[in-house]
Write a protein that binds this DNA or RNA. Structure first.
Length: 508
RNA sequence: GAACCGGUAGCUCAGUCGGUAGAGCAACUGCCUUUUAAGCCGUGGGUCGUGGGUUCGAGUCCCACCCGGUUCACCA
């Protein structure tokens, strides 16, 4: 016996024996294919298929799916099978399918969780449930592990009550395949996520922007403040970084003459995990030539309004205790005004020591390494961000926080940047892009000296990126939108793990 | 990294004051030809997260560790 067989549960051993018995009977427990004529919902929604009397002639239907529940009553039985679209009941009788198929195969050797194919006619039971009366029954896949078996029932108020739900979050994340089988709302969440991406892609394509792909393995990482993952290329014998952002490559493409480019990209940041953070996450970055951040705000609110409409049929989306209204336009509030409103302190024009004093007064913990930008960010993150539930553009950030952003056209010390805050969290970050190569070099070199001073999240100097800017990048607006976080909002999910099929877990 | 909560049968969970390990569903036997958390009779199934300690005796008390969840810190 192998190690695995020794550790099998009783139920797993029994299922393996059933598999062998089927093979001994000459029945392949894993046949190669089955011809479906209908999905479950197509049968349920088509009254023309239903036979009022058995003598009627309506077309036979062939359906396939996984057995989710079974009620055997001697020589006849009901069971439910679940396919990719839903669940439907099947009625099977010994006298219709034969003694061997019914008594031996169906009753003894088939279990809940097995995948089967059915052919039969459609009728309504006494209680009115549309059901397929099987004339042919075929095992399509023998299952070797017992499926968790939640039961759902409607009470007198029509509310659904679930018994024995598969609810262990760790198991649900680790065995997402099981979660998807037994918790139907999980599938809906991921379908919504895909629709969200499709909706954004269509919106950008309709504007004529080009979807592109740029390197994930990068010799110099940049475009964000974050610690990277490091890997190694053997033949070149060089370390490479998994990208933390794709900004610098997309801007090279604007230099190259594309007017609008976007990429849905997995980015990787070697930082902590939380219900808002996974080491790999998805954002879409978009860069559009000859536009500025004002234009990008209008574009963003229109795009996300459309996403909400396509996902919910409404611009209003329920999230937790709130109803979030995505109808454009959204409020635009300069960062210092927002801080003034929520703390009573006007930070504009304040120097480092004045900011340290205000931080102390507000009980914000800071240390000597914090620069002007970081202190302001802390105050904003503590007192303003959590209060912004409805989508809001916060504009005009301090230059210290934004090494890739063009200086504000009229406000000293600020840059033309906005973040979109929704449900108390940043979901997008955008700039009028810095395209002055001299200014850009100075700012990256300032970052590099922070880095030399021990700030391992500060950016490196990317000489090739600077060379590209020296060839001239037109005025450009750019944005990054967090797909996972937007998905959380649009699916009313509390954790990023609920919108990732396979969230990062510790090893089993 | 810290705090709190949790880990008992395949699933969901009980387990009192420390005294032979429990239920429902699932599985197995049998009955049952329109059931629907189907029903009825019976049966099997446990490294009580892991390791140590206290005790005549530990699922229960103590210590350490592992795993998870939540909150906090860092971050998007």
């Amino acid at each position: 016996m192998s190690q695995q067989e020794l550790s099998l549960s009783e139920q797993e051993q029994i299922r393996r024996e059933k598999r062998s018995q089927l093979q001994e009977m000459g029945i392949n427990p894993y046949p190669p294919q089955f011809n479906q004529s209908h999905y479950s919902v197509e049968v349920l929604e088509n009254p023309d298929l239903v036979r009022a009397e058995e003598s009627d002639t309506s077309p036979l239907v062939s359906i396939a799916g996984r057995i989710m529940a079974r009620r055997i009553m001697g020589k006849a039985a009901f069971f439910h099978i679940q396919d990719s679209k839903g669940v439907i009941q099947v009625y099977i009788r010994r006298d219709d399918v034969g003694v061997e198929i019914y008594n031996t195969v169906f009753k003894k050797l088939v279990d809940i969780g097995d995948i089967v194919g059915i052919r039969g006619f459609v009728f309504k039971t006494r209680t009115g449930e549309v059901t397929v009366h099987a004339e042919h029954f075929e095992l399509l896949t023998k299952t070797l592990r017992p499926l968790p078996t939640p039961k759902e029932v409607e009470n007198e108020q029509g509310e659904k009550i679930t018994y024995d739900a598969f609810s262990d979050k760790e198991l649900r994340y680790r065995q997402r395949y099981v979660d998807l089988i037994v918790n139907p709302e999980v599938k809906q969440t991921f379908i919504k996520r895909t629709k969200l991406v499709q909706s954004m892609r269509n919106f950008m394509n309709d504007h004529g922007y080009l979807e592109v792909e740029t390197p994930i393995l990068q010799p110099v990482y940049g475009g964000a403040s974050a610690r990277p993952f490091v890997t190694h290329h053997n033949t070149l014998d060089m370390d490479l970084y998994l990208r933390i952002a794709n900004e610098l490559y997309l801007k090279r493409l604007i230099v190259g003459g594309f007017d609008g480019v976007y990429e849905f990209s997995k980015d990787f940041r070697n930082e902590g995990l939380s219900r808002f953070h996974n080491p790999e996450f998805t954002q879409v970055e978009l860069y559009v030539a000859y536009k500025d951040y004002e234009w990008m705000m209008a574009f963003t609110e229109q795009m996300i309004e459309k996403v909400a409409l396509e996902l919910h049929g409404s611009t209003q989306v329920p999230v937790g205790k709130h109803l979030i209204e995505f109808k454009a336009p959204w409020p635009r509030i300069p960062m210092f005004e927002a801080i003034l409103e929520h703390t009573g302190h006007d930070l504009s024009g304040k120097n480092l020591s004045e900011l340290q004093a205000i931080a102390k007064e507000l009980h914000i913990e800071i240390d000597d390494s914090f620069g002007i930008g970081k202190i302001i960010d802390e105050i904003f993150g503590t007192f303003v961000e959590p209060k912004l539930i409805q989508p809001t553009f916060i504009t005009d950030y301090p230059v210290e926080m934004s090494p890739l952003t063009k200086k504000h056209r009229s406000k000293e010390g600020l840059v033309e940047r906005f973040e979109c805050i929704c449900n108390g969290k940043e979901i997008a970050n955008a700039y009028t892009e810095l395209n002055d190569p001299v200014d850009q070099r100075e700012r990256l070199e300032a970052q590099a000296s922070l880095r030399a001073g021990g700030d391992d999240e500060a950016m490196a100097v990317d000489e090739d990126f600077l060379r590209a800017l020296e060839f001239g990048m037109p005025p450009t607006a750019g944005i990054g939108i967090g797909i996972d976080r937007l998905s959380m909002i649009m699916t009313n999910s509390e954790s990023i793990r609920d919108v990732l099929f396979f969230p990062q877990m510790k090893p089993e």
